[in-house]
Structure formats: C-alpha cells, structure tokens
C-alpha cells in the first residue's frame, strides 16, 4: 500500500536532532517545551489528538525503528501496562517528578542551591553532563534545561525499551502527554459513541441506553 507522504511524516527526525543538540548545548533542551505545550494547546483548542495522530515526532521515531527497521519484537503490550491504573499512575508520577524538577529550578534561582550540571536518567542515575553548559546564562535557566532534558531523555529511553520488547508504539499507551490530551478531549467531547455490535436499540444495549451515539 503506497500512500502519499506529507511533510509531517518526516517529523521523526526531530527526536534524534533534539537529543543530539542537548548533548552539545544543554540550553537547546528548552525547545522541548514545544513538545509539552503543542499537544495541550491543540487538544484545548479543538484539534483533539491531532498531535499524537499526526505530528508526534517520538511516536514516528518509534514506528520507524520498531516497524520499518524491524527492531521491535512486536509482542502485545502487557495487560498491566495497558491498564488505567498504570496509565493514570504513570501520569501522576510524571507530574510529581516534573514539579520536583521545577522545585530544584526554583531553589537554584533563589540561590539556595548550586547549579547541578548533570542529567538524571530514569529519575535515579546522575550522568555527568557538564561539557554541555558553558555558563552563559542565569543558573536557573540552565538548571531547568538540565531537568527538562533529563525528562525527555528518560522518556525516550523508556519508549525505546518498550518499543524493543513489545510493539513499536507501546510507549503511546502510557505516554503522559497522550493521557493528558485524551483526558482534555474526553471532558470536552462527552459520551463516546457505542461501537458494540448491537443494533443501536437503547433497550438492549447499556452503552446506548447511557446516551452514547451509535457509531
């Protein structure tokens, strides 16, 4: 099946470029704010999950590695990883770690703590990264860059591991941005359509009875 390629089909290149830039100049990590803000803005302003469906560079990158390059085992994502508990639990954990990163940035900004020139991988391992910062900006700006890059690198590593072990885009199942944008869409959209094989008769289908439009 040949399909016409669009410019956004090549966005996968953004992931290696972003991570590569951060190796040499940590301040480039600030560009990653786009990957946080764009999906939220798109879903808030009525674009649904267009970011995930079309523009997500990371999803495309995993598809390329796992699908086209065949690096994925293509095994089903484990049931526990697909569960709501894990998805929302990971979102909360992600938020907690994000606010912890903001807190450290604030401490550095207020002078209560020195700048830490390392990247924290998997929220645990401190990897020296001092060569990527030349001391050209206010310390809190650099601290935020180190913290943000840590988050981006950690989530990419997790995504790569689940890509290798399971399906190319298994990361999408519990991606915090995807979960957040879906929550926004859910609040805005109301009851999703019934897709069961029922006839659409509300008297015989609980979902239709609940007011769900029939797909």
């Amino acid at each position: 099946m040949k399909t016409q390629k669009h410019w956004y089909d090549f966005l996968w290149i953004v992931t290696p470029i972003y991570l590569g830039l951060g190796v040499f100049r940590i301040l480039f990590a600030w560009i990653g704010m786009l990957f946080f803000c764009l999906p939220l803005l798109i879903s808030i302003f009525g674009g649904g999950k267009l970011y995930c469906n079309r523009y997500c560079d990371r999803g495309q990158f995993f598809s390329l590695l796992g699908g086209k390059l065949g690096l994925s085992r293509n095994k089903p994502t484990p049931r526990w990883m697909r569960s709501k508990v894990f998805r929302y639990g990971f979102l909360i954990f992600f938020f907690v770690m994000f606010f912890q990163m903001l807190w450290v940035t604030w401490l550095v900004g207020s002078g209560a703590r020195d700048l830490r020139e390392f990247v924290t991988l998997l929220w645990t391992f401190r990897v020296p990264w001092d060569w990527a910062y030349q001391g050209s900006v206010t310390p809190w700006v650099a601290q935020y860059a180190f913290g943000f890059y840590s988050i981006m690198l950690t989530s990419t590593v997790i995504g790569l591991v689940v890509m290798l072990l399971f399906k190319p885009r298994s990361w999408c199942v519990f991606c915090p941005m995807g979960t957040m944008t879906q929550l926004i869409c859910r609040v805005k959209a109301g009851t999703p359509p019934c897709q069961s094989s029922c006839s659409g008769d509300p008297s015989s289908c609980a979902q239709c009875k609940g007011g769900a439009p029939h797909a």
């Binding site: 598809s63 885009r169 359509p193």
Partner: peptide, 29 residues
C-alpha cells in the same frame, strides 16, 4: 472502550475506514 486514541490504526488502514472521534476513541466504519 480502552482505546488510547494514539492513531496507529489510522495509518495502517488501507481504505481509511477509521477516524478518531473527537480525540477520545478510534471509530471504525
């Protein structure tokens, strides 16, 4: 109902019979 609306299915459907309903769930015609 546990669809995460990631859109992976859209890309592989040979006849474009799948849509993401308001960013919430994939819907197959």
């Amino acid at each position: 109902k546990d669809c995460v609306s990631c859109g992976c299915c859209l890309k592989v459907c040979p006849i474009g019979a799948i849509n993401i309903w308001k960013g919430v769930v994939a819907v197959v015609d």
